[in-house]
Simulated scan of single mutants.
Amino acid sequence: MNTTARYARYAILILLGLYSILSFTREDYGRATSLSNTSSELSFNESPDELDLDLDTLGPRANATLLMLARNSETDTAVRSVRELEDRFNHKHHYPWVFLNEQPFSDDFKTRVSNVVSGSVEFGLIPHDHWYQPDWIDEEKASQGRQKMVQENIVYGGSVSYRNMCRFNSGFFYRHPIVQKYKWYWRVEPDVHFHCDIDEDPFLFMENNDKLYGFTISAYEFHSTILTLWDTVKEFIAENPQYVAEDNSMGYLSDDGGNSYNLCHFWSNFEIANMDLWRGEAYTKYFEYLDSTGGFYYERWGDAPVHSIAAALFARKDQLHFFDQIGYEHHPWMHCPKGAGLWSGKNCSCNPSSSFDYNGYSCIRQWERIQ
């Protein structure tokens, strides 16, 4: 090939390369940026300072982590959840991930997760006493309660491991040594979906606007799982009225001024919150009081109502936030943004008409009523 022909070929290749760059869509750019920042060669416990990232160029970030409780058997669904949140949000911010498990994570889990995160990642083993049923629980009484729930076809009614999880998420996750260094967390679960671009940093939004707890879905709890929870809460409040915030959200929890619980709660498989809320004196004493009754095992108290009741009573109403702009799905319920321009502006893939918000089982109307 002569010199003229060779130069002509190079010119054509350069033009084709420029065309491919110019024809990139915004989605292509997001995927390319995310993939270029994967951490497939990171060790499993590298800190942000050890990463080859210039964090100063990322702009301001909160002292926050993306937090997932997962098992080795959930590797596929955990990786999918991480990949979606990275693509929709974290590839621009590189917030660290923390994964917790009551069993040691497998090398396969750690390798595959590390390959799709854009920041640092740590894997933690949950201490035995933070997970398993305490020795002081009357197992005969607990077993009878589980059998009754199984007979009544209550979801997870016979599961001890589910009760362990609810108790751990209610009172222990924020105490884990790996999590201790963070102030904020975004709870993510395996097999969830993020349907919209998340342009604004939710952590900074909450920090800059004096928010403590954020949610996307509000629903009614199964009454049969928390038969004595509200009475226990009322006993605690009667003994500790100083912890109840002025301008709280009691109107969200109760239709009669607190005499009874209307079962409304924030669905805690998605929550963005300040862990100082849980680490403070009010919640610490509240959890210890609830835990001492054995209700997590004698009944099936979930961390969602436990967290929701505390946030609604111990924080001001204006410190709780509904993240309408975050499209989120945890089967069988999905929140799709309804605000003007949000759906198209955030490149949402969800169907607004299928949003759970105004399903008869949703409590979002109760929340909006007190705003």
Rank of each mutant, 00 (worst) to 15 (best):
L67F: 15
P48H: 02
P48L: 03
R31G: 00
D56M: 06
A62P: 08
L35E: 15
S40Q: 09
A70Q: 07
T38C: 06
N45V: 05
S36V: 05
T57P: 06
A70F: 05
L51G: 00
E41C: 08
S36L: 13
T33G: 02
F44A: 10
S40A: 12
D56V: 02
T57M: 10
D56I: 01
D52E: 03
P48W: 02
S40R: 10
L58K: 08
M68G: 07
A64H: 04
R31A: 05
N45W: 12
R31N: 02
D54F: 00
E41Q: 10
N63L: 02
L53N: 01
L53K: 10
N37T: 09
T25M: 02
L51T: 10
E50C: 05
F44Q: 06
A32H: 06
G59Q: 03
S39C: 09
T38V: 13
L42P: 00
D52K: 13
E41R: 08
R61E: 10
E46K: 11
S43D: 14
G30K: 12
N45G: 12
E46M: 08
A70T: 15
Y29E: 04
R31D: 03
T33I: 08
D28F: 06
R31H: 07
A70Y: 04
S34L: 10
D54A: 05
T33H: 09
R26L: 13
L55S: 09
A70W: 04
N45M: 11
N63M: 03
S36D: 11
S34G: 10
E46R: 11
N63G: 01
S39K: 09
G59S: 03
E41I: 13
L53G: 00
S47Y: 05
S40G: 12
D52Y: 00
L42W: 01
S34M: 15
L55I: 11
M68C: 15
T25V: 04
E41Y: 07
S34D: 10
S36K: 10
S36Q: 12
E41F: 13
T25N: 02
N45P: 00
E50A: 13
D28K: 07
P60W: 00
E50Q: 14
F44N: 13
A32Q: 08
A62N: 06
P60G: 04
L55R: 15
D54H: 02
A70N: 11
R61L: 14
T57K: 15
D56H: 08
A70I: 06
N45K: 11
A62K: 06
E50I: 01
T65N: 07
M68I: 13
N63V: 05
T65K: 03
D52M: 04
A62W: 03
N37P: 00
E50K: 15
A64Q: 04
G59C: 04
G30W: 07
A70C: 14
L55Y: 15
P60E: 14
Y29C: 05
D52L: 05
F44G: 10
T25C: 04
T38N: 13
S39Q: 15
S47W: 01
R61T: 13
T25H: 02
T38K: 01
E41P: 00
E50L: 09
E50T: 07
L67Q: 10
D54P: 01
D54E: 08
S43V: 14
E27N: 09
L67A: 04
G30V: 04
L35C: 08
E27Y: 02
M68P: 07
S39R: 14
L69Y: 12
T33Y: 06
T65F: 01
L66H: 00
E46W: 09
R31M: 06
T38H: 12
A62I: 03
